[in-house]
Amino acid sequence: MEQVWRDWGGVLLAVLAGLPLLVLVTAGLARLRRDVPAGQAWRRSVAEVGAVAGTLPWVWMILTPRDAPRQVDPVPLRDLADLFTGPPVTAVVQVVGNLLVFAALGFFAPVRLAALAGIGRLFLLGAVGSVLVETLQYALDLGRVSSVDDVLLNATGAALAGLLSRHWWARPAAALAGPAAVTTTRRG
């Protein structure tokens, strides 16, 4: 864990220092939304700020250059198998870290956008984001391993986090309007 703090302590401190600013940004966004009810304005603002602020630090970490040659591992589950033959702490940090990369996006995206409300959609969203990040790692020659296992873990993390927010997922406009909207559209 000491190595994790050495490598990423600055990022973690920057995130903690930025929390008051995130609260102000969320409140400002909610106040700007005069076209929707106050509760809905807050919900949208929290979801947008949460998705961005909860994802960017992880992306920052994994796009930080290392002094190593770049590598590509396109074989599924090979990196994971290798990980579990090494020190348990390394395996836990790598697996949990990869699950968390797009977890905030997976948690908040369906709260904000009904079109993303679905485990398969969230998995796909996480996979697309992860493929983009892995491609950047390789293209920018950051000394990192671009691995299909990272894509699988990142996408799984987005989907699992989405399950945690299922109660708050956005609903299509007709469902949000309530029963009155349904009865007025019936013809009989």
Rank of each mutant, 00 (worst) to 15 (best):
residue 2 E to F: 02
residue 3 Q to A: 13
residue 14 A to W: 12
residue 18 G to V: 06
residue 22 L to A: 14
residue 27 A to L: 13
residue 33 R to S: 13
residue 33 R to H: 01
residue 34 R to H: 06
residue 38 A to N: 05
residue 40 Q to W: 03
residue 42 W to D: 07
residue 43 R to C: 01
residue 45 S to H: 05
residue 45 S to Y: 04
residue 48 E to Y: 07
residue 55 T to C: 02
residue 70 R to Y: 13
residue 70 R to F: 14
residue 73 D to T: 10
residue 79 D to V: 12
residue 79 D to Y: 06
residue 80 L to Y: 12
residue 81 A to R: 13
residue 87 P to T: 04
residue 88 P to I: 09
residue 97 G to R: 10
residue 97 G to F: 04
residue 98 N to W: 09
residue 100 L to Q: 07
residue 100 L to H: 02
residue 102 F to E: 04
residue 106 G to A: 02
residue 107 F to M: 06
residue 107 F to S: 03
residue 107 F to W: 15
residue 110 P to Q: 03
residue 114 A to E: 12
residue 121 R to P: 04
residue 122 L to Y: 04
residue 125 L to K: 01
residue 126 G to L: 03
residue 130 S to W: 14
residue 133 V to Y: 04
residue 135 T to L: 11
residue 136 L to C: 04
residue 136 L to A: 15
residue 140 L to G: 04
residue 140 L to P: 02
residue 141 D to W: 08
residue 141 D to L: 14
residue 146 S to W: 07
residue 153 L to W: 06
residue 153 L to N: 09
residue 154 N to E: 08
residue 158 A to I: 12
residue 159 A to C: 08
residue 163 L to C: 09
residue 163 L to Y: 03
residue 165 S to D: 09
residue 165 S to N: 03
residue 166 R to F: 00
residue 169 W to F: 08
residue 170 A to Y: 01
residue 171 R to V: 08
residue 174 A to L: 13
residue 178 G to K: 05
residue 179 P to V: 06
residue 183 T to E: 15
residue 186 R to Q: 15
residue 186 R to D: 09
residue 187 R to A: 14
